[in-house]
Structure formats: C-alpha cells, structure tokens
Design a protein around this nucleic acid. Structure first.
Lengths: 260, 260
DNA sequence: GGGCATTGTTCTTATATTGTGAACGACGTT
DNA sequence: AACGTCGTTCACAATATAAGAACAATGCCC
C-alpha cells in the first residue's frame, strides 16, 4: 500500500493541537508541551517558532515559556459575526434585558456545548457571572435545549449517542429519556427552561432564533438568580423571550409562523 | 547553501492564512480561497479538509462553501484568561460602571490594536456599541494610549516606526509628535483621554493595570457619549478610573506606588 | 563551588508529506 | 447540447517534516 493520497495535513493537526494544549494550560515550556503531545522536542519547537512568527504565541520573557497571545481571540471573534447575528440581535437583547431586568444571552451550538456570543447584563447587583466564549454543556442549559430541539431528528440521535450527559448539579438531566422529553416539550411550547440544572441558584428561559429557512441557528435567553425568578415569573418571562427570539428571527429573514 | 534547516512550517502558515482569510470574509469556496491565497486548489482543499476534521471550519450545506465554526472563538477565548485578569477585574469593573453610570472596558495591546477582553455596560439607554474581540487602532483610543505609554522606550520607538497612524475621525492624532506628547502626558498623569479620536461622539478615560513587576499588562477605561461627558466630568472621572486600575493592579500583586 | 539534571535550541537525515497540475464527475447557464 | 465553473480526487517530484543526538545555558543540590 503506497499510502499516498493524503486527505489531511499532519503538520496542521499538530499545530492546532499545540494551540489547544496551550489554551488549556496557561503557559508551557517546549519539553512539557512535547510530553503532553507525545512528540519530539524539536518538532514542537519548530511549530512554536512558526506560530510565534504569525503572532499566535509568544515567549514570556520572564519564565522563558510559551503562551498564547490574544490574536487567536481576535481572529476567532470575527467568526462570531456570522449572519451579522450579533448586530441584529443586539438592540432586541438590550430591550429584553431592560424589560426583564435580567441578563440576556445569545448562544449557538458548537459540538456538545453552548457558546455564548453576546450578552447584555441587567441592572441588578446580584448577577451570576457567565463568561462569553467558554462553552457550557448543552444538555444542562435552556439555550442548549432550544438549540438541540432545533436539530433534525437524525442529528439529534447522533448527538445523543455521541455525548455524555455530565452532571453539573443535582438537577441536571443526565438520562436520555428525560432530556428527550424536555426537548419535545421545548419544541411544542417554543421555549425551554433551566431550573438550576447548570449552576445552583441559576434559572433560565430560552427561545430559538431561526434563519430564513426556518432552521434554528441560535438561541436567546434570559437568566437570573432563582430568588428573583420563581416558577411563575419564569413562565411569564417565556412569552417575552419568545417574542425576542421571533423578532431576531424576522430580522434574519424568517417568514414562518410565530407559533411553534 | 543547502537551505535545509527549516525554522518554520509552511503548511502551518498556509493553514493559518486560510483561517484568517475565512475570518475576514464570511464564506468562501475552494477556488475563491485558492485565488486569494495564491495557492493551488487541491492544497487549499486538503487544508480545509484538515481544519474541518478538527472542527475549525465547516461546509455550509446550503451554499457548499466553507466558513469558520465557533471553535476558534472558543479556543481563543481561553487566551483571554491569562493571569485570571478577567475574573480579578470583573467585580472592580462592575463597581466602576455602577459608580459612573457608563460602560467600563478592559483591554490589552495586540500588535497595533487594542483588544477588548471584557466590558460592563452602564444602565443608560444611549450606548455606543463596541464589540469585544474586534480590535481598534491603539493610537486612537484612551486604552491604547495608556498601553503604549506603558511600553518601554525601545518598544515604543519600534511601534511608532512600524505602524501607520490611520485617521478615524477629524480629531485622531495622525502625527507622531502629538501622539508622543499625549503618551508622555498619560504617563505623568496616570491616565489617558480620547476625545472623539476613535469615533465621533465617543469620549473615553483609561488607566493602566500593572502586574507584580510593575509592567503595564492591560488597561481599564470608562467610555460614553460626549453629551454626558463634558471635559470637566471626564477629568473628574479620571480619578475613579485610576483607582479602579490601581485596585486591579493590587489584585495582580502590584506593590509599587499608587501615583504614576 | 563543582557536578548533575534540566532546559531551549540547533543540526542532520531518511521518510513521509506537501504543493502542483491535470483529470474527473456534477451542476447551472447559455 | 455544449460550455464554463465548481468541488473533489489522483499521481508524482520536490521538499518540508519528525525524530534523535548533540549543544550551550541555566538552575539545583549536595
């Protein structure tokens, strides 16, 4: 077997592995990095030199070890502007946050996680701090549920087979059957809830955002501390969140029905 | 000259170029991308296959063209957590925003741009929308000025020689001499101003954030519309911004003097 | 202070991968 | 129906690659 006919580039995969490893650790030396990746020191060294030449990593002059620069963040952030989603959603989210007094979030599904790409914080002093960018397991959040409910059945089946439903709090749905039920419910009601399934003390309502074809491309949510959001308030808010999701969808060119 | 002894990896550089090009355009086909990069179609195709295999790009099933996923954003965002800066600065910025009623920003210098890594928006309805991530030319912002003022003289000289001072508004400082003067002033006062130099109608005050060695690693700022921030208010606010910068610095282990 | 074990970097080499150009099938248009 | 264009695959020569050994510099421990 001559084994030519390459469909992927090992060098590139290695470079990406270097970036990801560097992202998960704060700072690493060449030897340390090589050990983690199972490669030779000199190979890693050359990859680092390449990445440094392009401005993606740098050597900390103090410790003589390598770390990521902010360039990856800069380049990655532009991916966030797909469809102009952020710009279109921004004003709607401002209003949603003002009306509800809570934090409004915009998120998308990336593999098994929900990635927050925009948030508007409410005026309350007590606020739960959720970082943009850092993903959260989809099955444990309201946003994740509306996004999963928007997948077509085959993709959802594959998703459910492929991902472990890790437990984040005592209330996290870690079994497939209850999660499936929750997703069906989300689909029929047009919104999903998260009752401290992701973080204790945090409740959340989310609604889907659809593009002109009707496909769910993102979700909007409102989240806040349980004390301020008893069950009744949560369901009342759902209408507002759904309206916000619909408005963003309309701006994206969605022309389908307003009811699920 | 045998010319072996490679210090960089062309394949990796090409892959990064693909990512950057894809980031600057929304969606591109293989041929289009190959033309932009001046490479063969098949090379680009293999790179895309590799990047897709790692989850960094995907093919839009509608248009059959390639686009970035959000993974680059996810990985890049973790770079944002260097020093735990965001976590340490968060509460201080919350307070700064609450006290001033305006938007508080945290930024770092990346090449010739200031990258915003965290912001806390004020309660006012009239707000200027500045995205996180997307960089802004350093010479035209208050944050940029404190960060440049924190460079050591050699680095600053190199920076000034290397970068074009592009004009963003009629007030932008596009000459080196006035910029140098502004930087000296920022260094002696401990804060910098931006009077509609970046965007018309936007004013800004910024102060440096220092690590335990005293090096400027970031900046905090408060920004708002000119109508709410007359010159007098701006200078009054400077004290608060400086105090916030100092507090974050202290949390980072800075033990130097509080005055510049 | 001298020796020992790290570290980051450079060199060399066989080998596997890369970039290229051409050819293929599939669409959409003229 | 023929054409242009697209994404994909193929084959091959040229070249970059990954690995291991050797280097100097640094820090550490006895």
């Amino acid at each position: 077997m001559p084994s030519h006919g390459q469909y992927t580039s090992p060098a590139v995969e290695h470079a990406l592995a270097v970036l990801e490893t560097l992202a998960s650790a704060q700072e690493l030396g060449v030897t340390e990095l090589a050990r983690k990746l199972g490669m030779g020191k000199s190979s890693v060294h050359r990859l680092l030199a390449t990445l440094a030449g392009q401005g993606y990593v740098e050597k900390n002059p103090q410790t003589e070890r390598y770390r990521l620069t902010y360039k990856l963040f800069v380049v990655g952030s532009t991916a966030t502007e797909r469809y102009g989603l952020k710009d279109l959603a921004g004003p709607v989210m401002d209003r949603l946050s003002a009306e509800t007094g809570e934090t409004a979030n915009l998120g998308v599904l990336e593999e098994d996680r929900v990635v927050n790409i925009h948030k508007v914080e409410g005026p309350h002093l007590l606020r739960l701090h959720l970082d943009l960018g850092r993903g959260v397991p989809a099955h444990a959040t309201a946003l994740g549920k509306v996004l999963l409910a928007g997948l077509d059945p085959n993709d959802l089946d594959r998703w459910l087979r492929a991902t472990r439903l890790t437990r984040l709090t005592p209330r996290t749905l870690t079994q497939r059957a209850p999660l499936r039920r929750a997703l069906r419910e989300a689909a029929t009601r047009g919104y999903a809830l998260d009752d401290e399934e992701c973080s204790l003390g945090l409740r959340c309502v989310a609604a889907p955002v659809r593009d002109r074809r009707g496909a769910v491309v993102a979700g909007v949510s409102v989240s806040g501390p349980s004390q301020r959001l008893p069950s009744a308030a949560l369901h009342r808010m759902a209408a507002r969140v759904r309206a916000a999701g619909l408005e963003i969808s309309r701006r994206l060119g969605y022309s389908g029905p307003s009811d699920p």
